[in-house]
Every structure is written in structure tokens, then in C-alpha cells.
Design a protein around this nucleic acid. Structure first.
Lengths: 225, 225
DNA sequence: AAAGAAGTTGACAATTTGGTCAAGTTTTTT
DNA sequence: AAAAAACTTGACCAAATTGTCAACTTCTTT
């Protein structure tokens, strides 16, 4: 029962499946346990490196039970992957034409950093999947990402056209923002070394947000003369 | 023989073991073949996910022969990992106190991007190792990284103290530069989607360098007023 | 050219792994 | 409360995987 509580709590903390364990109690709860454990393991080891006994152990269920809900390792993996895209472009909503560029980009950076910190395992899983070639991301998911990116690039272009920011390649700018905001969660070990700390705290994330926005915003601001 | 040639060529292209196949011909050549193949496979699958038959096949040697040179998968992995740190901090030499900040940082970004592009597999392997918790990086290697980072942070601080750039947290700035310069190699699939291309070419890397330096350098430049 | 060292190889053993299943228990339905 | 559905579980199997090895070939030394 301690297991149930902690598993549910962990799941609530992460972004995985917001629905509570009320309508379809047992199945929903166990699937959640498994997926939460799976995200953690897959995020470190990848599809081929993860052992399903490990996932079973981490979820508190015997292996046979895991196979009662999922018919293969692949199925668990793709189920876990499917959650990722939504949280990926969620922060993107801040980049909208009717906002001031400075506010919008700062809000985006904060949202992205917060998300990376709160859903570190999911962030790592996404990184792992891309590192391995993104072969398990559905075509629909990748299309969606491309569409959203193009759409948001037009917002940046419009800001530049309106003289609100310097002209810049929007897509490379997005890559810059993605890479740095995800870095702290994906490569925490390296970030700790670089910052000379044992683990990243809220203060570090705050300083990260400050440094990123300071640098990028100043870099984009129009200079008269 | 076509195999030998291509393996040697691939090895020369990558940063792995510069020594030619002349002083200790057979052993050196085969170890190189194996390590080159291993970096490629490990960079995608990680230590647990990689199968040594895969490495054997990719190196063109039968599995038994691989075990003639290495006594375990772990040993191949750590041998491959040990090469990484040098190429990691190589670009860092551009950040030196006697240069102008603008030149230095631009040179650093270019060097880092070039290295990531030329040694894509090694870059991915490094990323993979950190993602999994950096448990196979030697203590010496991590100490070295910490030391170099601190040293270079002092250069940034000195530039700021001399009024050459805006005050900034040097360590977070480094993280920003690392993350974005490595992104194109590590997450090529995502970069392609973002840039709406099928594969990254020299032009894309060039535009990346331009956008990064434009943004970061303008962000750091002192404004009178 | 003979002998010893170095390298090659496929077949083999031991272990791990993904996945199944039949026999049980618990929960839900009627 | 009985029957049906849903869930649990450890034992089990087949395939995959790591690592070994003895017989063999090629190179180096003298």
C-alpha cells in the first residue's frame, strides 16, 4: 500500500495520464504504475537497453502482471513515448503574435525549464528516443512538431517584420532555446559538474532562466543607431 | 580489403586514435576497427542496449576476434569513452584571456560545431553516457572537466571585470554554448524536423553558427548609455 | 626455413532475456 | 450468493546473448 501511494504520487508529479484512479480503478492504476516505471527506465537505458524485469520491479508488479496489461516491450515503449509530444509543445503557446516578444520568450524559457525539471524522466526519454534516431515517434507526432514549429517561426518573423526584434533565423533560435532548456534535465550530471554542485536546486534553475533570457533577449533587442 | 580501407578511412575521419597502422600494424588496426564500430553502436544504443555481435559485424571482424582484443563489452565501452574528454575540451582553448571576447566566443562556437559535425558518433556517445548518469566516466575525467570549466569561467569573469562584456554567469553561459552546439549532432533527427530538411548540410551548420554567435555576442556586448 | 608468437575462426557452454500460461485470487455483475 | 469477469503469480520455455576455446592460419624472428 505504501507502494501504491508512492506510485500514484510519482505519477501525479509527472505529467503521465492525468485521470485519477477512480473510473477504471485497477487497470488504470496499474497501467499508470507500469508506464511511470517504464519512463524512468527507458529514459536511462533506451528501448533495447531496458530490461522488462527492471520495469516490473520498479513498478512493484511481478513480470507476469506487466504482460497482462502490455503484450510486448515495444508496446510499453510506444505507449510511454506517445505522451511526450504534448508536453513538448505545451510551452510553445507562449510564443504568440499578440504578445510582446520579450515577455513571450521569457515566459517560454521559464515554462520549458519548469517542465524539464518537473518531468525530468520524460524529458530524458524524449532525448533518448531522438538520440537513437526517433524511429519510434509516430509520423503524426513528427508532422505535428513540424507544423507547430513552422507556425511559431512565423510569429518570430512577424515580430522582426514589425521591427520589434532583430532579424534572426527563427528555427535556429528555437533550437537554441530547446537545447539549453532541456540540457539541465537531460544532462544533469554534466550540469552539476559545470556548476560545481552536487544536485540541481530551484536556485540553479532560476539562475539558468535568468542567464538564458538575459543573453537571448539582449541579443534580440533592436538597437537604435 | 575494401573493408580495411573503409574502416581506416572512417577512423581517420573521426577523432579516434590518430596513430596510423604502421608501428603495431595488425593489433592497432583491428583495435581501431573495433573501437570505431563500437562508438557508432554505443552512441545509439548505450552500453546495455548494444549487442557485441552488432559491433563485430560493423567492424568486419568475427565475434571471437573481438574477444581476442577485448575481454568484455564493458572494456570496449570504457575504452571508447576514454577518448571523449579530450575532444570535449579541445575547443575550449579558444576561450583565453588574451583574446577579444567576440573573436574568442565566435571561434569557440565554430570549433564546437565543426567537431560535433565531424565526430557525430563520438558526440552522441558522450551524450548517451551523460544521459545514463555518467557512471562510466572516470573520476579523473570528471575532475578534469570541472577544472577546465572553472578555469575558463575565470576568463569570462575577467572579461566582464575589464568592462569588455556584460556581467554574466559564466557557467550557465557555457552550458548554453555546449547544449546548442552539440544539439545538431546529438538530435539530428529533431534538428532536421525543425529546419524542414532531410539531412543537415554544411549550409545548415553555417547558419547555426551565425545565429548562435549573433544572438550570444549581441547579448554580451556592452551598451553605452 | 624452422620455430615461436600473434592473430583468426566457428562451434560451443552458460546465462540472461522476452514472453507464455495454467492455476489461483479478487472484484464485479446479476 | 453464485457466476462471470478481471486480475495475480510463479514456474516455465525458447530465443538471444555473452563469453570461451581448441584447432588453425598467418606473421615475425632468428
Amino acid at each position: 500500500m505504501a507502494e501504491e501511494l508512492s506510485a500514484t504520487h510519482a505519477a501525479a508529479e509527472k505529467g503521465l495520464a492525468a485521470q485519477a484512479a477512480s473510473d477504471e480503478p485497477i487497470r488504470a492504476r496499474n497501467v499508470l504504475k507500469i508506464l511511470t516505471a517504464a519512463v524512468e527506465i527507458f529514459s536511462r537505458k533506451g528501448l533495447d537497453g531496458a530490461r522488462i524485469v527492471e520495469i516490473a520491479k520498479a513498478s512493484g508488479l511481478p513480470k507476469g502482471n506487466v504482460y497482462y496489461y502490455f503484450s510486448s516491450k515495444e508496446e510499453i515503449y510506444t505507449a510511454a513515448i506517445d505522451h511526450l509530444i504534448h508536453s513538448w509543445d505545451d510551452a510553445f503557446r507562449h510564443i504568440s503574435a499578440d504578445r510582446e516578444p520579450g515577455d513571450a520568450i521569457e515566459a517560454y524559457v521559464r515554462a520549458k525549464l519548469d517542465n524539464a525539471r518537473e518531468n525530468a524522466a520524460e524529458t530524458r526519454l524524449f532525448a533518448n528516443e531522438i538520440l537513437q534516431g526517433a524511429e519510434h515517434l509516430s509520423v503524426a507526432a513528427r508532422d505535428h512538431m513540424r507544423t507547430v514549429t513552422s507556425e511559431k517561426a512565423r510569429v518570430i518573423d512577424a515580430w522582426a517584420a514589425a521591427g520589434k526584434i532583430e532579424k534572426i533565423d527563427a528555427r535556429h533560435l528555437f533550437i537554441l532555446l530547446w537545447s539549453v532548456t532541456q540540457f539541465y534535465a537531460e544532462f544533469e550530471a554534466l550540469a552539476c559538474d559545470a556548476l560545481n554542485v552536487d544536485e540541481l536546486t530551484a536556485v540553479d534553475y532560476d539562475m539558468a532562466a535568468k542567464t538564458i533570457t538575459q543573453t537571448v533577449l539582449r541579443g534580440l533587442m533592436i538597437r537604435l543607431s
